[in-house]
Design a protein around this nucleic acid. Structure first.
Lengths: 329, 329
DNA sequence: TTGTATGCGTTATCAA
DNA sequence: TTGATAACGCATACAA
C-alpha cells in the first residue's frame, strides 16, 4: 500500500488536517510541527496523491495539449517552448495526438478535460470538424487555440502573423529579382494553410509579383514532389515557388533536383516555419521562422488570465531566414 | 456545475448505485432501467468524472510516456505507433517531455505515476542518471523502457536490435566496396549510442572492414558537421562514414558538401533510424529503419501482461534502407 | 494554531 | 436486481 497523508500525520503525531496544512502551506502551522511533518513525509517517502487532491480542489496543476499530428515537426518545437515556459515548477504538460482526425481529437480533448486539466491548448485538426468539441469544452475549462483555429470566433487563438510572414517573403522575393511567383499550398482544412493561401495574392501584388493559380494538394513532402510535375506541365516555370510550409518546400526542392532544375539558378524556393531541417536542405531553404517561444508564452498567459475577458486573437510577428534557396552566389 | 451521476440517477428515477452499474456495466441491471439511465445520461450530457473514478478504482485507462526530447524526430514517430496500437478505444496516451534532463525526467515520471497511469513507457535520458527514479517507480506501476535503457537490468526493455542493424550496415558497405570505415557517434549517456558504438568494431571486422578510432560528440546535426572537420584533420578519408543516427548523418552530409567532397563518389555515408528526412537529404541517405510499429506493440504487450514475470529485453530486427548515399550510379 | 467532521464523484460492499 | 452506505485520499469549514 502506498503511503498516504494519514501515515505521515500518524508518524508526526498530528492530525491529518495539520499534516495537510503543513505540506501544502495553505494555512499557518507551528514551526516545530511543520518540521516534524515534513521530516516524517520525507522519511516515509510520501508523495501526494494527485488524483485525490484534484477531486477535492478541482485543480491539477496540469495543462493539456492536443496537436493534430506530433510527427509534423512544427509541433515538437512548440511543445518544447511551452515546456520551457512552464518551467520545472510543479506544473506539467500532458500531450495528446489527434492523429489528424477530428473524432480522435474530440476524444483526446474530453479525456484531458475529464482528467481535470486546468487549461487546454489545442491546435485544431480542422477549421470546421473541430469546432463543436472545442466550443463545448471551452465552457468547462479554459481553452486557447494555437497555430490553427476553428471558425468559431469566440475562442482565443495565438499564432504566427501569416500576413506579416507573406509580406516578408514577397518583399524578399522582389528584392532578389523575382517577377512571377506561384504558391504551393494545401487543400486541407487547417486554418494556417487557408490564411496563407488567402494572403499570398495580395502580398505578392503589393510587391509587384505576378502570380498564377496556386497549386493545392495534401500536406506533406510527397505533395511537394508532385507539385513540381504539375508546375512543369503548366509551361514555363515561375521565378519563385512559395510553399505554405517547409515540408512541402523540401518536397519541391527534391522534385526540382530530380528534374534537373537548378535552385536558386532557375527558380527560387521558400518555405514556412523553419522546421529544423530547412537549414539542412540542398540548397538550404529560405523560410519564415515562427516565434515559438513568444507563442508559447502568450498561450499560457491567456490560459492563466481571469475568465470572462474578451476573446483574443494574438498574431505574433515571424522573422525571415534567408538561405541559399533564394540567394544566388 | 457539471452534471454528475447523481443528476443522471435522479432523472432516471433510480439510485446512484444503479445508475453507476448501468453505465459501467459492472453488474447486471434491469433491461428497462438500463435504457432509462443511458437515455438520461445522454440527455443530460453526462460524462464520467475520471478523477473520481480513478480515486475509487485505482485505474485510469491511461498510459503515460516520457521521451527524452520530443523534437528528436525518432520519438514522434514512435508515439504515433503507440497511439495506433492503443486504438481509438478508451485508453489514452499521456506524453511528457524530459528536456534531456534526468531531473525533469524524474519529475515527469512521478507526475504521471501520481496521476495513477496504468503503465509507463519511458525512453530514459541517461543510462545512469535515470536509473534511480525509474527503478523506484517500477515498484508502483508497470514500467517498460523503450529505445534506450538504464543500467538496472531488472526493468523490461523494447527496442531495435542494434547488433543486427550494424550487421546490415557493414555487410552492405562491404558489398558496395568499402574497405575502411569510421563511426561517428555520441559521448552521450544514451544506451542506444553506447551499444552501437560497442558493436561497430566487431560488425565491421566480421565483414572485412578496417576501422579507425570512432569520433564522439554531442547528439545532433551540428556535431555531424563538425565531425567532418575532425575527420579531414586526421588525414585521408575513410571509404565509409557510419553514423549512429540520422541527425548526425545529415550533418555529415552537409559538412562533406561544404568541403566539396562528393557522396557517394569519394565517401559513402550511412545513418540510423530512417527519421523521415533521411530520404530527403542530398544524396538521399542509406539508413536502418526501426520497426516502430512492432516496438510499440511489444511495449503495450509487456505493460499489459500480468505482473511478476521475468524481466524481458526485446530487440526487434530493423531493415536496411538503401539509398544513394552509398550507391554509385 | 490545531483537531473534528464533512464532502469532492465515483464505485464497492452489504442488505434487502 | 436494487438501494443505502461506506470508502478512495485529500483539503477545507467550522469549532475549539
Amino acid at each position: 500500500m502506498r503511503v498516504t497523508i494519514r501515515d505521515v500525520a500518524r508518524a508526526a503525531g498530528v492530525s491529518v488536517s495539520t499534516a495537510s496544512r503543513a505540506l501544502t502551506g495553505a494555512r499557518p502551522v507551528g514551526e516545530q510541527i511543520a518540521v516534524r511533518v515534513r521530516d516524517a513525509a520525507t522519511a516515509l517517502g510520501y508523495r501526494q496523491n494527485r488524483v485525490a487532491s484534484a477531486l477535492r480542489t478541482q485543480r491539477t496543476d496540469t495543462i493539456g495539449m492536443v496537436v493534430p499530428q506530433i510527427s509534423n515537426p512544427f509541433y515538437p518545437v512548440l511543445v518544447e517552448a511551452i515546456e520551457r515556459c512552464l518551467g520545472d515548477d510543479n506544473r506539467q504538460l500532458l500531450l495528446c495526438d489527434a492523429q489528424r482526425d477530428a473524432t480522435v481529437e474530440s476524444s483526446r480533448i474530453h479525456a484531458l478535460a475529464d482528467r481535470q486539466v486546468d487549461g487546454l491548448i489545442v491546435a485544431p485538426v480542422s477549421t470546421v470538424a473541430s469546432a463543436a468539441a472545442l466550443t463545448s469544452i471551452a465552457g468547462e475549462v479554459p481553452v486557447v487555440q494555437v497555430d490553427r483555429s476553428v471558425a468559431d470566433t469566440a475562442l482565443d487563438w495565438v499564432g504566427v502573423d501569416d500576413v506579416a510572414g507573406l509580406r516578408l517573403l514577397t518583399e524578399h522575393l522582389a528584392q532578389v529579382g523575382a517577377r512571377t511567383a506561384v504558391l504551393v499550398g494545401t487543400v486541407s482544412e487547417s486554418s494556417a494553410g487557408r490564411t496563407r493561401l488567402a494572403e499570398f495574392g495580395p502580398a505578392a501584388a503589393r510587391h509587384g509579383l505576378s502570380t498564377a493559380e496556386p497549386l493545392l494538394g495534401a500536406y506533406g513532402v510527397e505533395w511537394g514532389v508532385r507539385a513540381v510535375d504539375e508546375l512543369r506541365e503548366r509551361g514555363p516555370l515561375p521565378d519563385a515557388v512559395v510553399c505554405v510550409n517547409d515540408e512541402i518546400a523540401l518536397g519541391v526542392l527534391q522534385g526540382l533536383r530530380a528534374a534537373g532544375i537548378s535552385v536558386p539558378g532557375e527558380v527560387v524556393v521558400t518555405g514556412f516555419d523553419d522546421n529544423g531541417f530547412a537549414a539542412l536542405a540542398d540548397p538550404p531553404l529560405t523560410t519564415v521562422r515562427q516565434p515559438h517561444q513568444q507563442i508559447a508564452a502568450e498561450c499560457l498567459r491567456l490560459l492563466d488570465r481571469p475568465r470572462g475577458g474578451p476573446t483574443r486573437r494574438i498574431a505574433l510577428a515571424p522573422t525571415l531566414v534567408v538561405r541559399a534557396s533564394t540567394t544566388l552566389r
